[in-house]
Computed example of a mutant assay.
Amino acid sequence: MTCKHVAFFVTAMLLSAMVRAQSISVEGEVTHPLKLSAADISAMKKVEVVAADRDGKAHHYSGVPVYEILQQAGVTLGPQLRGENMSKYLLVKSGDGYEVLFSLPELDSTFANRVIILADKMDGNPLPAGKGPFRIVVPGEKKPARWIWEVTTMTVRFAK
């Protein structure tokens, strides 16, 4: 394989990942599966959180609370989040296959004090290449290992 072929292959893979990340699917144990575009997310109510990255540098992230997205999809939250529904979780996937897990109570504002967001801006600017267009930001965690970037899919499931 020549250098031109390698460069073409790498460029095609990067473009493919960018196209996949331009929308987010919300699926699984939901009453209203969603396919949210960047425009859909941009039109939603935004919040801002200040959180430190892995280097300890504080940034201002702007985005939609994950709770709000899950409510729009009809996920069992609030007063209905009890009993067997307490075993539901959210699996978030990125374009490169990385996955992170959240229990529903830690995303629900009636259970938790922090707000986990799907960010589309950092310090007033769109997320940098390779980190966006959407990233989960989890304020208050000592390690940002669940700060998944290039989010493509959110799946709600029962733990069984």
Rank of each mutant, 00 (worst) to 15 (best):
residue 15 L to V: 13
residue 155 T to F: 00
residue 124 G to L: 02
residue 4 K to Y: 03
residue 122 M to Q: 06
residue 145 A to H: 09
residue 151 V to Q: 08
residue 85 N to Y: 08
residue 149 W to G: 12
residue 136 I to N: 02
residue 125 N to L: 06
residue 116 I to R: 13
residue 147 W to Q: 10
residue 135 R to G: 03
residue 101 L to Q: 12
residue 65 P to F: 06
residue 86 M to P: 03
residue 84 E to I: 04
residue 128 P to D: 01
residue 105 P to E: 04
residue 103 S to E: 09
residue 86 M to I: 06
residue 159 A to E: 05
residue 25 S to Y: 12
residue 32 H to T: 05
residue 95 G to R: 10
residue 31 T to F: 02
residue 27 E to T: 14
residue 129 A to K: 14
residue 20 R to P: 08
residue 149 W to L: 04
residue 69 I to Q: 07
residue 132 G to D: 10
residue 70 L to K: 01
residue 64 V to I: 02
residue 12 A to C: 12
residue 2 T to Q: 10
residue 83 G to E: 03
residue 41 I to W: 06
residue 25 S to K: 15
residue 92 V to E: 01
residue 79 P to S: 08
residue 65 P to Y: 02
residue 114 R to E: 07
residue 137 V to K: 14
residue 37 S to D: 13
residue 106 E to A: 02
residue 13 M to A: 06
residue 40 D to K: 09
residue 100 V to H: 00
residue 153 T to M: 10
residue 26 V to P: 11
residue 144 P to M: 11
residue 65 P to L: 05
residue 99 E to L: 12
residue 73 A to H: 03
residue 90 L to E: 07
residue 15 L to E: 14
residue 124 G to T: 01
residue 156 V to S: 11
residue 49 V to L: 13
residue 110 T to H: 00
residue 16 S to P: 03
residue 44 M to L: 10
residue 9 F to R: 14
residue 51 A to F: 05
residue 88 K to W: 04
residue 143 K to G: 10
residue 89 Y to R: 12
residue 7 A to V: 15
residue 88 K to L: 06
residue 78 G to M: 00
residue 140 G to D: 13
residue 87 S to Q: 13
residue 2 T to K: 11
residue 156 V to G: 05
residue 74 G to R: 00
residue 24 I to R: 13
residue 48 E to Q: 09
residue 54 R to I: 03
residue 58 A to E: 13
residue 94 S to I: 03
residue 116 I to C: 09
residue 154 M to R: 07
residue 26 V to L: 05
residue 108 D to T: 00
residue 112 A to L: 04
residue 140 G to L: 14
residue 35 K to G: 07
residue 15 L to G: 14
residue 86 M to R: 10
residue 43 A to N: 15
residue 26 V to S: 11
residue 74 G to F: 00
residue 79 P to N: 07
residue 140 G to K: 14
residue 133 P to Y: 02
residue 51 A to D: 14
residue 134 F to Y: 15
residue 17 A to Q: 12
residue 14 L to R: 15
residue 98 Y to C: 04
residue 27 E to R: 15
residue 31 T to N: 07
residue 74 G to P: 00
residue 76 T to D: 07
residue 121 K to I: 01
residue 121 K to C: 09
residue 14 L to S: 14
residue 110 T to R: 01
residue 84 E to Y: 04
residue 43 A to E: 13
residue 152 T to A: 06
residue 78 G to E: 02
residue 67 Y to C: 04
residue 151 V to C: 10
residue 76 T to F: 02
residue 156 V to C: 12
residue 99 E to T: 15
residue 71 Q to I: 09
residue 154 M to W: 02
residue 95 G to F: 05
residue 69 I to D: 07
residue 154 M to V: 03
residue 113 N to D: 13
residue 149 W to D: 11
residue 87 S to Y: 12
residue 98 Y to W: 06
residue 19 V to L: 15
residue 66 V to E: 05
